[in-house]
Structures are given as structure tokens and as C-alpha cells.
Simulated assay, not measured.
Amino acid sequence: MILIAHDEYSGISEYETMVIRDAKSLNKFYAKINRTRKPGLPVPTLDFSKEIVLVVCLGEQKGKKLLTLSSNEETENEVSVSIEMVDSDEVEKDKVQYVSYPFYIYKIPHTSKTINFEKIGW
């Protein structure tokens, strides 16, 4: 899994994951997150015949968090992906923590298997 994009503001207020398998869907996602940006974030160029995109929107977060994605198990029909969040070392307990709505976009090799996301340690 390769992180290709990340930002602290998605405009998406609830936790959400998605698997994007075509350019049209990726453009639609970017249209949503670029709604309040001028200029907007550039849409990555990908070859969807060779790779697909995993999107994780964390919803409202207080303070700085770090996200890691890892592949757990792979069966004949599905792939399990773990999502783990940890507090950043930069967080100081006495300071006011800002609110963010981060998103992460990863690319993986193309697969037609079902992708299941699993939260760990939330």
C-alpha cells in the first residue's frame, strides 16, 4: 500500500472508507473534498487497470493523529485491511487541540476481491 494523498480537511464529518476502482469515482470524491477549496487539490493520475484506490476519511478528530493501514488477511474472495490510529508525539496534553477532518488515499495493486476495513485500537 502506498500513500498517495493526505490532507487535514476533507469536509466529511463522519468516519468513512471507500474503494475506488475507476477515474470517474476518484474525480467525484475530489469534487466533494475540493468544494470549499480554491484552488482545489489536484486529482492523482492512476492506471485503474493496474491499481485501485483505498480512501479513509476519519471524520472529526481532535488533536494530531497518525494513521497506518496494513493488509491483514487475504482469502480467495476478500482482503482484510487494518486501520490503526495513534496519537502523534507532537500532541501536548496542556495545549488546546485543533479539530480536523483528515483523509488518506492509498493505492494498491488491482484486485477484484472485496476489501474489508477493520479498525484497530480506536
Rank of each mutant, 00 (worst) to 15 (best):
I12L: 05
S112D: 12
I33K: 00
E73G: 14
I33H: 00
K64T: 15
K38D: 14
I108A: 06
T111K: 05
K28I: 13
T36L: 15
R37T: 12
Y15P: 03
I105A: 03
V96I: 13
P39F: 08
N116F: 09
V99T: 11
S49Y: 04
E60A: 14
E84S: 13
K28C: 10
T45Y: 04
E73P: 08
D87H: 11
E60K: 09
K50L: 07
S49V: 05
P42A: 05
T111C: 02
Q97H: 12
I2W: 12
G40K: 04
D47S: 03
T75W: 06
D94W: 09
I33G: 00
T111P: 01
K95H: 07
D87G: 12
T75C: 06
S82I: 06
T36M: 14
T17G: 07
N27Y: 06
L26K: 01
N77M: 08
E76L: 10
P109Q: 04
T45Q: 09
H6T: 15
K95E: 12
K93T: 09
T68C: 13
I33V: 15
A23Q: 08
S82T: 04
M1F: 10
V79I: 14
Y15W: 13
V86K: 15
V55F: 03
E51A: 04
V43D: 00
V81T: 03
K107T: 06
T111H: 02
L26W: 02
E92T: 12
E14M: 10
F29G: 03
A31K: 14
L58N: 04
R21P: 01
R21K: 14
Y15F: 13
E92S: 09
S49D: 15
I83H: 00
G63Q: 02
H110Q: 15
T114N: 13
L58V: 03
Y106T: 01
L66A: 10
D89V: 11
A23W: 04
P102D: 02
S49T: 14
G59W: 00
P39I: 02
P39Y: 05
K24I: 08
Y30G: 05
R21H: 08
F117C: 05
S80Y: 09
C57T: 10
I83A: 00
E84N: 12
D94Q: 11
G59C: 03
T45W: 01
S49I: 07
V53E: 01
R37K: 15
K95G: 07
S10F: 00
E60Y: 11
K95T: 09
E14I: 07
M85W: 03
K65N: 13
D89P: 12
L26H: 03
I115L: 03
L26S: 02
I33W: 00
W122A: 09
M18H: 05
E90L: 13
K64S: 12
E51G: 02
L66C: 10
T68P: 06
K93W: 08
G121D: 05
I2L: 15
S112I: 07
M1Q: 12
Y101I: 01
P44T: 04
E118P: 04
Y30Q: 06
V86F: 10
V99G: 06
K119H: 10
I120S: 08
V43H: 00
D89I: 06
R37A: 10
V79W: 00
R21C: 05
L67K: 04
S82F: 08
K119V: 14
M85G: 04
P42S: 08
Y104C: 01
V91K: 09
S13R: 11
